[in-house]
């Protein structure tokens, strides 16, 4: 009789889990090839961002070849050089780092705060709900970009202040979505049951309401990633984002415009393409996440 040891069970369990993961991914890609492709593209961009120093050929800010100003793309500089001879390819690669970092952290922070707030506001209701609704409406009466601009101005320009400013612009949007999910989840009988056996409000919110909000939150957060990347780039373009000389895609596009210089085509095309491809990948991936998590919405918008 074969003996089954505890290790065997653990190994089998792990194998089964990996297999189910692989299977889920394969299944997803078969049903949603666009989603799978955009997911791959995101992985590639994340790889470039994480390993930027190895992927880049030069240092993004310290390297500047004054004998090769505004040089067209070629074998020495794959995407050409900018006005002061910095290597554009390396700057685009390092720009991915800033863009993704800002976008991920801002969306996580802003949307998580928004989600917690939304659950509390929807579940507790009453005065908290009314006051927080009024307050968030105020935040929403600024156009996003302008709100982000004055917040960065108030806090001083830097990577972290840009992140804080952008995440603040996310809060009202996610509160609104998660609050409405909470309001409908709250009506379920199992919530009443939990209350009846004496669960505290905090426990009901964390154990019973929040899990129901995970799927809509994921849809919301992936949708926000694309728009946040554009927002960060806009701030950089306007010269009020992460300060120069840090290589960000927005800074690279805005620098020559602010200086009143006419840029060469490669200085405009490559950073812009980087933004577009990244945002496109996130948007398409977000759409397929939504289709996968919320079949009711499939095919809409």
């Amino acid at each position: 009789m074969a003996q089954v040891t505890a290790t065997d069970v653990i190994v089998q369990d792990a194998e089964r889990r990996t297999r189910s993961w692989v299977w889920a991914i394969l299944n997803f890609s078969q049903r949603n090839p666009v989603g799978a492709l955009s997911g791959l593209a995101i992985l590639a961009i994340v790889f470039v961002a994480v390993f930027a120093p190895y992927v880049a050929t030069h240092h993004p800010t310290e390297y500047a070849d004054f004998s090769a100003l505004r040089e067209a793309p070629g074998s020495a500089h794959w995407m050409g050089t900018d006005d002061i001879g910095r290597d554009l390819y390396s700057r685009v690669v390092h720009g991915a780092r800033i863009s993704l970092f800002v976008a991920l952290v801002a969306v996580l922070v802003g949307d998580l705060i928004g989600a917690a707030w939304g659950v509390a506001s929807g579940y507790i209701g009453g005065r908290l709900d009314i006051y927080s609704q009024r307050f968030l409406e105020l935040l929403m009466s600024f156009p996003t970009l302008i709100l982000a601009m004055i917040l960065v101005l108030a806090m001083g320009a830097g990577v972290w202040t840009v992140i804080v400013a952008i995440s603040i612009t996310r809060i009202p949007l996610s509160v609104r979505v998660i609050r409405s999910v909470t309001l409908s989840v709250k009506e379920n009988a199992y919530v009443d049951a939990a209350q009846a056996i004496g669960a505290s409000s905090g426990r009901v919110m964390v154990r019973h309401i929040a899990p129901q909000c995970v799927a809509p939150w994921l849809v919301l957060a992936t949708a926000h990633l694309g728009s946040v990347i554009i927002l960060e780039a806009s701030l950089g373009f306007l010269g009020v984002g992460v300060p120069m000389p840090t290589a960000t895609w927005g800074n690279m596009l805005g620098g020559p415009v602010a200086a009143g210089l006419i840029p060469r085509w490669w200085m405009v095309v490559f950073p812009g393409l980087a933004i577009t491809v990244t945002v496109l990948a996130f948007n398409l991936f977000g759409d397929s996440i939504r289709d996968a998590l919320d079949p009711k919405l499939r095919g809409r918008t």
Partner: peptide, 22 residues
């Protein structure tokens, strides 16, 4: 429509300006 949702408007603007200038 999916493409133009991803193109930042200031980039499109800069591209048009650059084309006109050139």
């Amino acid at each position: 429509s999916i493409l133009f949702l991803a193109i930042p408007n200031f980039w499109l603007g800069t591209l048009i300006v650059l084309t006109l200038v050139l």
